Deep mutational scan, measured.
Amino acid sequence: MAAGGDHGSPDSYRSPLASRYASPEMCFVFSDRYKFRTWRQLWLWLAEAEQTLGLPITDEQIQEMKSNLENIDFKMAAEEEKRLRHDVMAHVHTFGHCCPKAAGIIHLGATSCYVGDNTDLIILRNALDLLLPKLARVISRLADFAKERASLPTLGFTHFQPAQLTTVGKRCCLWIQDLCMDLQNLKRVRDDLRFRGVKGTTGTQASFLQLFEGDDHKVEQLDKMVTEKAGFKRAFIITGQTYTRKVDIEVLSVLASLGASVHKICTDIRLLANLKEMEEPFEKQQIGSSAMPYKRNPMRSERCCSLARHLMTLVMDPLQTASVQWFERTLDDSANRRICLAEAFLTADTILNTLQNISEGLVVYPKVIERRIRQELPFMATENIIMAMVKAGGSRQDCHEKIRVLSQQAASVVKQEGGDNDLIERIQVDAYFSPIHSQLDHLLDPSSFTGRASQQVQRFLEEEVYPLLKPYESVMKVKAELCL
């Protein structure tokens, strides 16, 4: 049975990233139509530049190519590739079939990587351009969430054990800070992308030097003109047959890092959902379990974690691919890159769409948070109580021993009897502590235990987050809708 299948058929496997999760716009960027249309555009740009620099290419040939950029006979191309065992030459023939007058000058002087690699770089750039505003929107939604809850005390956790208090907004800023680093890295790697350009079979530009009869300047002009037509500021000066596969490492490393950030955020949300302090959106008709109707599973956060793990592992592909590119190139890269580049971007696209949807509907339960604080705060307040007693004339050592005994009794009630923490009640009825009984409410005010959390939130948002989001103001209103 021949390899390949009808990918629109229910009898043929289709990647869930495309069929179930990723956005239509990201799927289109990695589609065959987008790819092969870009090949034709690159052939047109090459012909236009070659004509401008004096090669015998007519206006009629150029116009014929322009008129057929979208006229792609995919069936013919597939048949040609089956016959020739070469995808680029299959599309040269297919393009030439609908451009008979231009057929002889299509791909003039070029090698397969002229269309293959340059198209990949265009796709990487455009895919990054799709991700950047999506990530900015996630940051914006979380920034709104953090600002609104900047002063809401909550129990902090280290080692997932109760620690000092923080605020809900401050905790959210930990998430935002990681995503801001990801946004900066995505922008950097996007701006650092260079075009492969017009380089020939081993990167020496020998074929173009021959076409222009040894004119170095025209060869350099050709490279520059096509690079500018493709919208790049610069091209690699040095290439082998391909652009260095280190570029793929750079791009997928940034995406993998984004995956790590999203995994951490969504894990926190899942843990908070278990504590009943916070939940992701839950639709009115949504079913959490087929057997347990009360369940409210954090399905979206779980999906993000599941896909983020996949995204983090994909960076190993370009690392290994770059390491086995012998001399000017081997074909070890080809099949692998067809999979890992598309999957990385479709996965990143999915987790950003999902995280935006989550961040637009996060639900906080202040009463649950308050109750958990009441359970733990008495123990945390013991040092403040000791200091207040010393100020009232008591002995630190005597007070410490009193607190120690009462704390152990209260802990026994919590752990052995399943009761509430009654340390404060014990202190309130103990005559030894009568000098500070009137101060206990103040000493137990949760806001006095959150330090500068709310001020940190305000400063972080104003100095770091809002300036970073400013270039994306025009796209901030787009909502994230999930079908599944």
Results as ranks from 00 to 15, higher is better:
L53G: 04
L484H: 15
T267D: 08
V414A: 02
Q221F: 10
I238A: 01
R37S: 13
F460S: 04
M299D: 02
R337I: 00
Y243V: 15
H107S: 02
L484I: 10
L131Q: 11
T321W: 05
I176T: 08
C483Y: 06
V478E: 15
P435V: 11
L222M: 07
G4Y: 14
L55P: 00
I139D: 04
A335N: 02
F36L: 14
F232L: 11
G104Y: 09
C113H: 03
D420Y: 06
P471A: 14
A47P: 07
S151F: 04
M292C: 03
V251M: 03
C340W: 02
F95G: 01
A230S: 02
F327W: 02
F327P: 02
R404L: 07
Q458N: 12
H7F: 12
G361S: 08
W175P: 00
T244V: 07
P56T: 02
K470S: 15
G203S: 02
L406G: 05
G156D: 00
V363Q: 09
P281E: 09
E328Y: 10
I105Q: 09
E343P: 09
I424G: 12
H400Y: 06
R337F: 01
V254M: 04
F30A: 04
N384M: 06
S438E: 13
G4Q: 15
Q41T: 10
A342R: 10
L69G: 14
L423E: 08
H217W: 15
V364I: 05
S334V: 04
S301K: 01
N71I: 08
F36A: 14
E279S: 06
I351K: 00
L461W: 10
T267V: 06
D398H: 10
A206P: 09
W175Y: 12
D11Q: 15
I351G: 03
E328F: 00
M181V: 12
L346R: 07
V168Q: 05
Q325L: 10
L423W: 06
A78S: 09
D333W: 00
I386K: 02
S323I: 02
K199G: 11
A260M: 13
Q63C: 05
E50M: 08
I385E: 00
S112P: 05
W43H: 06
A392P: 03
T350C: 11
G240C: 02
A22P: 14
A78G: 09
S15K: 06
S151W: 12
R245K: 12
E64R: 08
E462A: 10
M26P: 11
L314H: 15
R338E: 02
G169K: 00
F208S: 03
E279Y: 02
T382W: 00
Q241F: 00
S290E: 00
S395A: 11
L155V: 03
D215I: 11
I123F: 07
E360L: 12
I386E: 07
L443W: 03
S67R: 15
S412A: 08
W45K: 14
Y34S: 11
P446S: 05
H159R: 00
K246F: 02
T350A: 12
V363K: 03
C99M: 13
G451Q: 04
Y13R: 12
L355A: 07
R190V: 10
F282P: 03
A136S: 07
S454M: 07
F379Y: 04
Q439Y: 02
Q439H: 04
I351L: 10
K391V: 10
E283C: 13
P16S: 15
E25W: 07
K199Y: 05
S412F: 14
F28M: 13
E462M: 15
M312Y: 05
V478W: 14
V457W: 00
V478F: 11
P298S: 05
L352G: 07
A127Y: 03
R20C: 04
L482Q: 13
V189A: 03
N126G: 09
Q458G: 13
K66Q: 14
S438P: 15
F208H: 07
D192V: 13
E148D: 12
D73C: 13
M299P: 07
A348F: 03
E473H: 14
I403S: 06
L440A: 11
S9P: 13
M312L: 07
F345P: 01
T450F: 13
R194Q: 10
G231K: 09
M316Q: 13
S434P: 08
I269E: 01
P366I: 02
A2D: 12
S67E: 08
S447T: 11
I238E: 04
I106A: 10
R171N: 01
I62V: 07
M181A: 14
I369P: 09
D215M: 10
Y21H: 13
L44M: 08
E360V: 10
E417C: 14
A273R: 02
A77S: 07
D268T: 08
I249T: 09
I436E: 04
L121V: 12
H7G: 09
